[in-house]
Design a protein around this nucleic acid. Structure first.
Lengths: 203, 203
DNA sequence: GTCTATAGCCTGATAGAC
DNA sequence: GTCTATCAGGCTATAGAC
């Protein structure tokens, strides 16, 4: 599930990516300088160019590492057999875990959706999203044959993701409490909503 | 509904904001230079400093303009009377129109959720989001008294927004068609999903 | 209110010693 | 493989003429 896992000749190349990922997640491509990355790694800026030819390539390699293997877990959860209701439950649980457990990945995903050029988005779609998305559309068809599977698959993902996306501002809204940021609570809420909407054993 | 609509002494000040908004929406704060803005306006970079003391203030004023009056329409739609089902239908329609009709606003919203510091997010919450959000939580309570209104209000918004957020990558996914980007189709799908989930006159 | 010119710093990237 | 040193250019912001 590698986009292009090459480019990093050795261990230092991997360390650079590992340190760069949280920086890019927090501040975006233009908000992080090569000096920032070098400082985080503990080497000088010039040394970075021994491992990556320029900032763009370093960023692409960091993205590849950040997105690697993320899709497999989702696809596996959706396709793991059982009734459609069970597969839906597993999808919501796994996807919520993923978003809650890897904030850098989530931020990079949102940044790519905002900033990604055509080439990067096509790469992302073909090498990361296609497999879990197709599994999700098949699940959508099993759950609601009368519903557009593409639209439903997107809705299932957005329903989970938006709760995390809005977390930093929800704390300033009335009635907000820390339980609303609890991944288990979010998963429970989303699953209940989807179960009712799709007519599977509404609680 | 102004965050801080001052700072722009005259007409040029407003023109600057109008030209800066799409630039910030596309490339973010660090991705846009004062020279870029000046070029878009048709003046030199130095002239910008006659209207705004620095880049931060210019950005804040642009945000204030971009977010001004956006909330009123949503709150009005949710509170416009009628049955809860009718209010839900009006919310989905109005919110979808807003997101589809003002891509710059949508991008800036997502950027603020990603990049916004505590001060900006608090300001945004208190001066823009509180009113429509409270209206949405009241609607949520009327629709589903057994459901956490905070969680449900967030879900209602996320369900709409994510379809637009993913538009640039969905075109590379199998089974995608331009009908999935049609605001009317998105609204129809989301309303049907929510109506079923909340038990109001399933289609 | 806008201009030209520039200060002072940061940027990505390179050269060459070790 | 990392370093020091540096280049050329972009950046924000300011000074001062008109």
């Amino acid at each position: 599930m590698s986009i292009d896992s090459a480019s990093a000749s050795n261990a230092t190349g991997q360390i650079i990516l590992t340190r760069a990922i949280p920086l890019f997640a927090r501040s975006g491509f233009t908000g992080v300088s090569m000096r920032d990355i070098a400082r985080a790694v503990g080497i000088t800026q010039a040394a970075l160019y021994h491992h990556y030819p320029d900032k763009q390539r370093l960023y692409l390699a960091a993205m590849a590492q950040a997105f690697a293997d993320k899709a497999d877990g989702i696809a596996a959860a959706v396709e793991s057999g059982g009734t459609p209701a069970e597969r839906l439950q597993r999808f919501v649980a796994r996807f919520t875990e993923l978003m809650a457990g890897d904030p850098d990945f989530r931020a990079l995903l949102q940044r790519e959706l905002l900033d990604g050029d055509e080439v990067r988005l096509r790469l992302l779609a073909e090498q990361v999203f296609v497999q879990p998305f197709q599994a999700m559309t098949r699940l959508a068809q099993d759950l609601a044959p009368d519903c557009d599977p593409h639209l439903l698959a997107i809705s299932m993902a957005g329903l989970v993701l938006f709760h995390f996306e809005t977390a930093p501002v929800r704390r300033f809204l009335p009635g907000g409490s820390q339980t609303h940021d609890d991944p288990a609570e979010v998963a429970r809420h989303v699953l209940r909503l989807l179960s009712r909407a799709l007519g599977v054993e509404g609680d």
